[in-house]
């Protein structure tokens, strides 16, 4: 009988932990890029912000898609587990394609090479909202490469409707190389050099 409050507290604790959506992720870092931080690829990519989201607002069709990019940097040695894009695309809206991209250029080369690491066509729920996750393997090379997430709105046959095609945020789930000593010891800097 006297254990009842304690058991109830344990159950309440489990409920609150799950309800708060505050799960613990061992050895994981999360970086969230708000939708409004998107960089449109062209000066005639029309956009607007609403509720922290990036919205495609091109009112005319054209052959070239409207592309918005979310570049990111990661510390050397950090592994990327998942890249998740949150957004909306209703069934009657402009088609959207998500890509994980990387461009690399060696230090002795003048040409760069872009690579599509992953591609997704987001599947929205009844209201068009989606979460689309992409795996990122191998992890980006920080020395010669730069990575980004991009959303491509195909406006070749249909103009954008601002309320129906948007990007809410991009989440990077990463794993640091060394949780304990990260940032503490310089492993790539030789202080003996002048």
């Amino acid at each position: 009988m006297t254990r009842t409050p304690f058991i109830l507290a344990l159950l309440a604790c489990a409920f609150l932990s799950s309800a708060s959506d505050a799960a613990d992720y061992p050895n994981r870092d999360f970086r969230v890029i708000t939708g409004v931080d998107g960089k449109p690829a062209r000066s005639d990519d029309s956009y607007s912000y609403a509720s922290g989201n990036y919205r495609c607002t091109n009112t005319s069709t054209r052959a070239t898609p409207h592309v918005v990019r979310y570049p990111f940097n990661l510390p050397e040695g950090t592994s990327v587990r998942y890249v998740s894009v949150y957004g909306r695309r209703t069934s009657d809206a402009t088609p959207v394609t998500l890509r994980l991209m990387q461009v690399c250029q060696s230090q002795t080369d003048v040409d760069s090479t872009s690579t599509v690491l992953a591609t997704r066509t987001p599947l929205g729920n009844a209201d068009g909202y989606f979460i689309s996750s992409m795996e990122f393997s191998p992890s980006p090379e920080t020395l010669d490469c730069r990575a980004w997430v991009e959303a491509s709105f195909d406006i070749s046959t249909m103009a954008c409707n601002a309320d129906k095609a948007s990007i809410q945020r991009v989440t990077l789930e990463t794993e640091p190389a060394d949780r304990i000593f990260r940032g503490t010891f310089s492993v790539n800097v030789d202080y003996t050099l002048p």
Binding site: A9, C13, S17, S20
Partner: peptide, 12 residues
């Protein structure tokens, strides 16, 4: 029990 609930609520 009170401490446990307090910690849970603090977490949320």
């Amino acid at each position: 029990t009170a401490a446990l609930l307090g910690m849970c609520l603090a977490g949320t």
